[in-house]
């Protein structure tokens, strides 16, 4: 039953993803991609659980490395997206261009 339930969630989320992105202007494709990429760092939750449990030393080590990679993805992804979006300016600002 668990598998069926999770598959339902999967299917609905895929439709949601399609709906959310299909009308984004090309101007924002890069930030959108890196922003979405940061979200895929959500795998950090799994990494935390693996790294924080008290048995199987090998699993904890794998978990710790996974935490590092996922954190790079999350922190780097959000920060770089913010940096890019900070550069998109409207015309009226500062009279430039």
């Amino acid at each position: 039953m668990e598998a069926v339930f999770l598959s339902f969630i999967l299917m609905l989320s895929i439709f949601l993803g399609f709906e959310l992105i299909s009308k984004v202007p090309a101007t924002l494709h890069t930030p959108l991609m890196s922003g979405a990429n940061a979200i895929s760092g959500i795998t950090v939750l799994g990494a935390l659980i693996a790294a924080g449990q008290d048995h199987a030393a090998a699993a904890t080590w794998l978990g710790a490395v996974a935490v590092m990679f996922a954190t790079i993805n999350v922190v780097g992804g959000y920060m770089v997206t913010d940096r890019m979006l900070g550069m998109f300016k409207k015309k009226d600002k500062g009279g430039a261009a």
Binding site: L10, F15, L20, A36, N37, I42
Partner: peptide
Amino acid sequence: GNNLLIVAGSTVGAAGMIL
């Protein structure tokens, strides 16, 4: 068995497919 990973992961997966 984590719902949030499934929701966020597949939403991003679908978004990437659209792009």
